[in-house]
Design a protein around this nucleic acid. Structure first.
Lengths: 184, 184
DNA sequence: TACAGGCGTTTGGCTTGACGAACAGATCCT
DNA sequence: AGGATCTGTTCGTCAAGCCAAACGCCTGTA
């Protein structure tokens, strides 16, 4: 056994989301098409629901599936321009700063990219299913898959598969962009 | 019944992730502590796994739980500055453009925010567990939880819980920012 | 050819989740 | 008081998930 399933977290999440929706146990069970005995046991921490059951509950609660299995947690974080961990790069005229690393379950990283005009910054394919999102803040850039890059200006948005070779390059003047790297 | 559970998606995801990991069905079943007959049926689309079973498979595959229940998808998308669906707002000097809506499973939206100086744009709490990430592109803004907002300049990054009242306000001059709204 | 060892499938039995009904407690109304 | 109608719980039955073992298929090797 690699790791125990979070059955008690599911129980807690179910109670939490149900009360938030203002539903009684009976009502939720009825709407979801689940026996209220089943739901009662689940909220009690007893039981190991099938995907079908949990899916029905999640959809009628209007919450994504993983809310019921993944833990919560937030906080306020500020990273000032120029601060934050810089990602190593081959050449100095390109910097990527990691603003928010993928917490388990969120599967995405947020970077601030700044690049001087000149050499392109080509990237090897990432994990299959990875998608990158770019919003340009300043300057003009050429970005996207190596075989069909797109020219972007301030405010432009681009998303493309990250599991193929892709590029990022500042045109004319220094450029900056926010990049969201989304792992499947 | 509110909606059929994505049992065939789970089947497909299992096959996909397993082959990506370079594991045989037998090997994965062995490592996960699951009978290979069970896994075989699951990958065949037959069956309705319990949370325990699916959890064991997900963790040994090293992927988050929701990868197995939510769909994939990529593509190249460009939204030029000023285009894209604008989110309705109370007052006209604040615009939020939806760049990438949360595909089921990714649970995050990407917005481009522009605001004129003046009235603050306060938001009511979102779904519990929501986290917002802001990277300022231009101008100076005051953003964050209503009771402890933070002043930000170009390149600054801020993240804060979205499930409490929060605000966004341009100081002095027009400001723009990229906002990632991450649902749990 | 024969055999060993990998693969993914199908089969029978045990275990257990899901269901409906019966249950006790709490309001509320007559 | 006595229904009436909620709440959430527990119990017995049935269906189904899970497991181990046996099976057929293919590949490499003696």
């Amino acid at each position: 056994m690699p790791e125990p399933a979070p059955l008690d977290r599911i129980a807690a999440a179910l109670r939490r989301e149900r009360t938030r929706a203002g539903l009684s146990l009976s009502e939720l069970a009825k709407r979801a098409g689940v026996a209220k005995s089943t739901l009662s046991q689940l909220e009690g921490g007893t039981g190991n629901p099938s995907v079908e059951t949990l899916w029905a509950l999640a959809t009628t609660l209007g919450v994504p599936f993983s809310v019921l299995v993944d833990p919560p947690r937030p906080a306020v974080t500020v990273i000032r321009a120029g601060e934050g961990p810089a990602v190593p790069s081959e050449h100095a005229d390109y910097t990527a700063t990691l603003l928010s690393a993928s917490p388990p379950g969120a599967r995405r990283d947020i970077y601030l990219i700044t690049a001087e005009p000149g050499r392109a910054r080509d990237s090897a394919p990432h994990q299959p299913g990875t998608v990158e999102h770019v919003v340009v803040s300043a300057g003009r850039v050429l970005a996207g898959p190596l075989d069909e890059p797109v020219e972007l200006g301030p405010g432009d948005y681009l998303s493309y598969p990250g599991d193929v070779p892709h590029t990022f390059r500042a045109l004319r003047a220094r450029a900056s962009a926010v990049m969201l790297m989304q792992h499947v």
